[in-house]
Design a protein around this nucleic acid. Structure first.
Length: 426
RNA sequence: GGAGAGGUGGCAGAGCGGUUGAAUGCACCGGUCUUGAAAACCGGCAGACUCUCACGAGUCUCGUGGGUUCAAAUCCCACCCUCUCCGCCA
């Protein structure tokens, strides 16, 4: 949610910024609505004031034993007037709210211009893709060759876009998860959390998935209003919802491993092969809650924390600054990490690191007490994948493949694999 | 699943339907005192919104949503959540 004051006082500035995303803000409509809202709010306030003043005088009169019948007669139709005015006000306010909740975040100046992903800018590159004297296999061929990557049973059990991992591959995924959590907690200063995987609508509204992107979510058909989390960002960031955090407690750094559930509505036909795009996948997420003045630096730092995972796994990657047209709804600036996949001969997204500034904080009333003003003010939230575990598994398979179809275990994972050196067909 | 208790400000905790947006304590901020600190004392201290250049004024919020009433933290209904006991269970 944007700062409502800014939206009201400088709608053109907001509109110009959002236009960079290709989002058209109808300033005239906004101002017309605002005018109506103000008009009715004043009317409602006046009527309520009249009612309150009257009720008080009734109380006084009664206390003094004066006949209150004439006073009551005076305000006979006040209730109706008030109800009518409130109905008008509520209708306009609802429209305003809907509009406000549908506005994406404003972009930082440093975000590159561009309409789509082809305009994303490469910021840096790490590692050198390995040279293969033969055509490297993709993770599907490798995993199925090992008899450890099983889409057949997954399809039977659930359907498309699910996977069953067997034996060493299942363990490799667990090893990756453990490694990531350990690195973030022991070297990057994050506090590990275990969180619910089912969340309520308020939490999803807080982080920005609702109301606009409900079709991307799985919701439960029970009596309770639950959704499956699309990312740990939702439960973790919402820890701060409706909280006022003391300045001395910031920054807060959280890391959590969760499965993530996405309906992938609208992505039919994309990445149908393999486990790049699944309905259910594992992810380690890092989240920071910081003072506004610290968020830009925290964003760089958080991105570096995600990069450290890939570096220690010795997986070549590049860092992309997403352009205005490709950046997510709630983000003010995003870096994507793209890992090299020899099977595709492409860099593919494995982490997305975003600074939401006050966008999520306003939606969820997550505040810090600014010592300079003494007032609660919205804090800044950031998050990044640190990193997507399923895709990391894919990257390890493809980058560490051997000519005989076996997979060498990355050095940092060996302790988590019980000393296993390589994965080969049993 | 059964029975009961309860949700009030940053925290704890009062609150006969009518000067209660809310006593009191703690925490916090400012001041007096002190070489400094502590203690003591004095003062301030919820949030959001609207009008106003400003001073200031008004509205809303006591879990959420409805209802009763001239008037609701207080009465009624529904829902959500927390706690205790019993049962069941990974």
């Amino acid at each position: 949610m944007l700062d409502s004051k800014l939206l009201r006082t400088e709608p053109e500035v907001v509109a110009a910024n959002l236009a960079r995303r290709g989002f058209k803000l109808d300033v005239a409509h906004l101002q017309a609505l605002e005018e109506q809202r103000k008009k009715w709010q004043i009317k409602v306030d006046e009527l309520r004031n009249e009612r309150n003043v009257n009720a008080k005088s009734v109380g006084k009169a009664k206390a003094q034993g004066i006949d209150i019948a004439p006073l009551l007669k005076q305000v006979e139709d006040l209730g109706q007037q008030l109800a009518a005015a409130e109905a008008e006000f509520n209708a306009v306010q609802a429209q305003m709210d809907q509009l406000a909740m549908g506005l994406p975040n404003m972009l930082q100046d440093s975000v590159p211009e561009g309409a789509d992903e082809t305009h994303n800018v490469e910021v840096r590159r790490w590692g050198t893709p390995r040279e293969f004297p033969y055509a490297p296999l993709d993770h599907v061929a490798l995993g199925e060759g090992l008899m450890m990557l099983d889409f057949t049973n997954a399809a039977k059990i659930s359907g498309a876009r699910f996977v069953v991992l067997h034996k060493h591959l299942a363990r490799l995924q667990r090893a990756l998860t453990q490694f990531m959590l350990d690195l973030h907690t022991s070297e990057h200063g994050y506090q590990e959390l275990y969180v619910p995987y089912l969340v309520n609508a308020a939490s999803l509204t807080g982080t920005g998935q609702l109301p606009k992107f409900s079709e991307d979510l799985f919701s439960l058909k029970g009596e309770q209003d639950f959704f499956l989390i699309p990312t740990a960002e939702v439960p973790v960031t919402n820890m701060a919802r409706d909280e006022i955090i003391e300045a001395t407690a910031l920054p807060l750094r959280y890391v959590a491993h969760t499965p993530c559930f996405r309906s992938e509505a609208g992505s039919a036909g994309r990445d149908t092969r393999g486990m790049i795009r699944q309905h259910q996948f594992e992810k380690v997420e890092i989240v920071q809650l910081v003072r506004p003045q610290d968020s830009a630096a925290a964003h760089e730092e958080l991105t570096a924390h995600a990069e450290a995972i890939l570096q220690k796994l010795e997986l070549p990657y590049r860092v992309m600054a997403l352009c205005a047209g490709d950046i997510g709804f709630g983000s003010s600036k995003t870096y994507d990490l793209e890992v090299w996949l020899p099977g595709q001969q492409k860099y593919r997204e494995i982490s997305s690191c975003s600074n939401f500034e006050t966008f999520q904080a306003r939606r969820m009333q997550a505040r810090w007490r600014n010592p300079e003003t003494g007032k609660p003010e919205p804090l800044h939230t950031l998050n990044g994948s640190g990193v997507a575990v399923g895709r990391a598994l894919v990257a390890v398979l493809e980058n560490y493949q051997q000519p005989d179809g076996s997979i060498e275990i990355p050095a940092v994972l060996k302790p988590y694999m019980g000393g296993l050196e390589r994965i080969q067909k049993a």
